[in-house]
């Protein structure tokens, strides 16, 4: 055995435990390590999880339905689920512009209005927030110049910006997009800068050693290393984006799910209000899944890491 000058030779805890030869640690283990039958049990487990998850909503819906009389609860304030469903159906598939129901057949159009605003605002937030976050996390001068402003503006709630937004952008989608962008910007910039700050110094040194310039290092080392944090920021930001679009449309836009929400409440159509709320929840959920799917794809290297490390 070799004599070392330190009390104990350090052993790499991340390396596989004393392999007899220098073999790959991951690929072989992953194939043989899974217990038999796990693949059989998986579908039943999934079905069980789905059933378990559905139990609470089903119970609530049933109780809500059974508690109602003549299609509503609390003296006509809260419509029962069947009425909500019927209202949504008309809202989604009813003939447009006929009869007394102004919402008939406008669901898809309003969904698209709101979704488009969120997409635009969120896109702006990414385009500004990610580079700004990288700059703040990476460069001391950028941090000194930008971070204090961000930190001072951040505590102002997005709702407090509403009058300002209406004054500047007037009644229309511009103000909504501004509020979404602003609301989503903060979590994106804060998380991105945190990720950029935490980049392993050895990776930077490795890139420098290989002749990479500052811009190459930002793009090829800092950005990918910060990407997990960036995605955390994106998911939080997207949630805030949906909040912002509803608030803005309720007050300052004449279309979209937020507008319908407030308008329906005003004329006492609680069935449409609830159908609208569920629609918003669904859209928020689906858009989050979309970001999650992109994250899964972009951070495939990291999933492998957590399996093997």
């Amino acid at each position: 055995m070799s004599v070392t000058m330190e009390p104990a030779a350090p052993t790499d805890t991340r390396a596989p435990a004393a392999p007899a030869y220098d073999a790959p640690s991951g690929t072989a283990g992953a194939a043989s390590g899974r217990p038999r039958g796990a693949t059989l049990r998986r579908p039943t487990r999934l079905a069980g999880r789905v059933l378990l998850g559905l139990a609470l909503p089903v119970i609530v819906l049933a109780a809500w339905q059974l508690a109602g009389r003549g299609g509503s609860l609390f003296g006509g304030v809260l419509p029962t689920p069947d009425r909500v469903w019927a209202a949504w159906w008309t809202w989604a598939f009813g003939a447009q512009g006929l009869g007394l129901n102004p919402y008939s057949g406008t669901w898809l159009a309003n969904v698209l209005y709101s979704a488009e605003r969120v997409a635009k605002g969120f896109g702006c937030a990414i385009l500004i927030g990610v580079p700004a976050g990288i700059a703040i996390g990476w460069n001391r001068i950028a941090a000194g110049a930008l971070d204090p402003t961000v930190q001072i503006l951040r505590p102002i709630p997005i709702t407090a910006w509403l009058p300002f937004s209406i004054a500047v952008f007037g009644i229309g989608p511009g103000g909504a997009i501004f509020l979404i962008a602003l609301g989503a910007f903060y979590p994106i910039v804060v998380n991105t800068s945190q990720g950029a700050r935490d980049v392993d110094r050895m990776l930077i040194r490795a890139a420098l050693m290989m002749g990479a310039g500052p811009f190459t290092i930002l793009r090829r080392v800092v950005l990918p290393a910060a990407l997990p944090s960036v995605f955390t920021g994106l998911r939080i930001g997207l949630g805030i984006g949906w909040t912002a679009v509803i608030v803005a449309e309720m007050v300052a836009v004449k279309s979209g799910l937020g507008y319908v929400l407030w308008d329906a409440y005003y004329v006492g159509r609680m069935d449409v209000v609830i159908a609208d709320m569920i629609t918003i929840g669904l859209l928020g959920f689906l858009s989050d899944r979309l970001v999650l799917a992109i994250e899964h794809w972009a951070l495939a290297w990291r999933r492998l890491q957590s399996h093997h490390a």
Partner: peptide, 11 residues
């Protein structure tokens, strides 16, 4: 085509 995490320390 292996990722670093799929390799042993020596590799």
């Amino acid at each position: 085509e292996a990722l670093p995490v799929q390799l042993s320390g020596g590799m």
